[in-house]
């Protein structure tokens, strides 16, 4: 863009190349720019607008102010049970998946033959877990005379009617989620394998016991990965849909009617897009608050060494 008068011909050429690079980059980013505005930013804004409207899928939105939010907080008999069901699933499921993933990664982090085989096998449930076919399987696993009750019966337990009892039904879904610890475990394992062996050697020389090494060396070093994993697992639990929709159908007595399922039910079978949009903001707020707690608290428990 220089006026050329006081610029040397060489720098003019340089500027032209720079400009060409810039234009190429913008050209290559056109699809992304369309995607991010049309399918991400614009919908986010519209979702806020829709939450203040009454909106039938075949019609157009009409402004009703905060009525959706008022109805949700004061008059909807399903809303609060749905919030409770979501939080229970998130707050029990997340630590469970984290603990299982870390424990297995810890056991696997060892120079043994066949570790790769185990690593691959443990990852299979993560690949299959969301599939409808697995929901079919889970319904049968927890059937009153299915294998889970048969095994429990061998230990003398009374058969449990898993899907009819509001205190047991959520556990069938939590167990399904825990079954899919594989990807989280793989990330933990990679982090554990990156811990420099010299640290352990030094600790051995100092005579530190293995358990002490776990708490003094291993855990502090992998805290950044722990933060990353816990946010991912948290997000996954907040957004659970397939299992709740297919295995328990949200029941019994709304015990598994997670917000993500309830949003779908309000939007599509019940044809209330505006109300569903308002519910979406509650789910997003829940995700936002818990993620923020993790981030803010991480200052006290995450160690960054490099």
């Amino acid at each position: 863009m220089g006026t050329g008068d006081n610029a040397a011909p060489g720098s003019d050429k340089k500027a032209a190349i720079k400009r060409k690079i810039k234009m190429t980059a913008y050209f290559l980013l056109i699809p992304w720019f369309i995607g991010i505005t049309v399918f991400r930013i614009y919908p986010m804004i519209m979702n806020l607008y829709y939450s203040f409207t009454e909106f039938h899928p075949l019609g157009e939105p009409s402004w009703i102010g905060v009525s959706n939010y008022l109805e949700m907080f004061t008059a909807d008999p399903v809303f609060w049970p749905s919030v409770v069901a979501t939080l229970r699933y998130v707050l029990i499921g997340t630590p469970l998946v984290m603990a299982a993933a870390f424990f297995i990664a810890f056991v696997l982090n060892f120079k043994l033959k066949g570790v790769n085989l185990f690593r691959t096998a443990y990852y299979i449930p993560s690949i299959l877990g969301g599939n409808v076919a697995v929901s079919i399987l889970w319904v049968r696993m927890f059937h009153p005379i299915g294998p889970v009750n048969t095994v429990l019966g061998a230990f003398g337990a009374e058969p449990i009617n898993w899907f009819a009892n509001p205190s047991f039904a959520p556990f069938t879904l939590i167990i399904l989620s825990a079954w899919q610890f594989g990807s989280v475990m793989l990330i933990f394992l990679a982090a554990l394998q990156n811990v420099s062996p010299t640290l352990y050697e030094a600790a051995d020389i100092d005579g530190a016991r293995k358990w002490r090494q776990l708490f003094a060396i291993t855990l502090p070093i992998i805290t950044p990965v722990m933060l990353f994993n816990s946010i991912n697992v948290l997000l996954r639990h907040f957004q659970e849909f397939n299992a709740a929709a297919l295995i328990t159908g949200g029941g019994p007595l709304n015990a598994t009617r997670f917000l993500n399922l309830y949003i779908y039910e309000m939007a599509f079978p019940s044809l209330r897009l505006g109300y569903a949009a308002a519910l979406t903001w509650v789910l997003l707020a829940g995700i936002g608050v818990l993620t923020a707690i993790l981030f803010v608290s991480s200052r006290h428990w995450v160690h960054y060494n490099d």
Partner: peptide, 16 residues
């Protein structure tokens, strides 16, 4: 946008 859940856009994208 890495951390943005799909549910945040679901209804408006449907309308789109």
């Amino acid at each position: 946008t890495l951390l943005m859940p799909e549910v945040a856009f679901r209804i408006p994208v449907y309308v789109l």
